[in-house]
Design a protein around this nucleic acid. Sequence first.
DNA 1: GACTTGACAATCC
DNA 2: AGGATTGCCAAGT
Length: 116
Amino acid sequence: MTANKDFYERVYAMVRKIPRGKVTTYGAIANALGSKQAARTVGYALNASITKGIDLPAHRVVNRKGLLTGKNHFLGATLMADLLRDEGITVENDQIKNFEEVLWIPEFERDFELNA
DNA sequence: GACTTGACAATCC
DNA sequence: AGGATTGCCAAGT
């Protein structure tokens, strides 16, 4: 039962673990997957999730500054910020306020290194 | 199969 | 301090 799933699926699984009302960063996810430098790939995976029609709380994933860089990929221009506000997160000008307070860091996937 | 692209991040002027 | 550059990793062309 290898943990050698596609990088995509690992990203999806991680995103799904994000608690409601919390957010995380691309870098944090990448780090949790064992490749802290692969933040770009994480974003790429989320983008692919849209193409594949996978439903993810992708609005809870922002860049390291708490900026809603991916909002442009959502249906509406304000959908992402709207969803976050709905979860109790304050968003102003595409920037999450109290970013550190709502930031959620995923745990490292030991499965990864066991298989590596 | 090499080159480009991309929802990022850290470094270097 | 802030714009520009480089690094990383996987996918698409």
